[in-house]
């Protein structure tokens, strides 16, 4: 029997090393750590829960089936986000995606379908009024993100939702640093314009 380790406290590189030894709990730990960020990135790119689930699965299967090729000098998260972005962009290129609100897919006919295709914005323990305002702004910004070009969308989310540096984003998306800065600048401007009505 393999020795029991507290995987939750190990850095990514150590968990990957255990996964490379065929330890299933290490695979589970990697999934636990990154399923939400990866799913969120993809969902905000494709705006469809089912598709996002399929693409997130594809991302993890690609990464975990090739975990032996991982080189510890790179961040695992960068590798994951790079693949997640690639699968999402490939998907968007293959088909034109409808822009939907966070209230559910436009194709949803029944209440159950609306619930299945909508997503929740978690409460952060604010007052009722703050929560309403926050939800309003949250919904508005989700809608504004949905209207951005996919390239802007991935850049702005990696920068401000995932907190990545410009250099990391450039490496992840295989884009020149200047292009990443331009995309983020334009995305911020478009978002600012889209949210202007909420501030007035």
């Amino acid at each position: 029997m393999a020795p029991v380790l507290d995987l939750a406290n190990l850095p990514d590189a150590d968990v990957v090393a255990l996964a490379q030894q065929g330890r299933e709990p290490a695979y589970r730990e990697l999934l636990r750590r990154y399923e939400r960020p990866v799913f969120s990135l993809i969902f905000r790119m494709v705006r469809d829960r089912e598709t996002a689930e399929d693409l997130a699965q594809e991302t993890f299967i690609k990464v975990l089936n090739h975990i032996d090729r991982y080189r510890p000098e790179f961040k695992l998260s960068s590798w994951l986000f790079k693949i997640a972005n690639n699968v999402a962009i490939d998907h968007l290129r293959k088909r034109t995606v409808d822009t939907i609100s966070i209230d559910g897919s436009p194709h949803a006919a029944t209440r159950a379908e609306i619930e299945a295709t909508s997503f929740d914005v978690e409460s952060r323990g604010e007052s009722a009024l703050e929560e309403v305002e926050s939800r309003e702004l949250g919904s508005a910004i989700e809608r504004a993100i949905a209207r951005l070009r996919p390239e802007y969308r991935s850049c702005i989310m990696l920068r401000h939702v995932e907190g990545r540096s410009y250099e990391e984003i450039a490496a992840m998306l295989d884009l020149p640093l200047g292009t990443v800065k331009t995309y983020i600048h334009r995305a911020r401007k478009e978002l600012r314009d889209a949210l202007e009505h909420l501030r007035t």
Partner: peptide, 22 residues
């Protein structure tokens, strides 16, 4: 705008997502 972006939550995949991947 940046604050609003930074407060966007991570969305949860369906409950059996990890099992399906594994």
């Amino acid at each position: 705008t940046v604050r609003a972006l930074e407060h966007l939550p991570h969305l949860a995949p369906p409950p059996l997502f990890a099992e399906r991947v594994l």
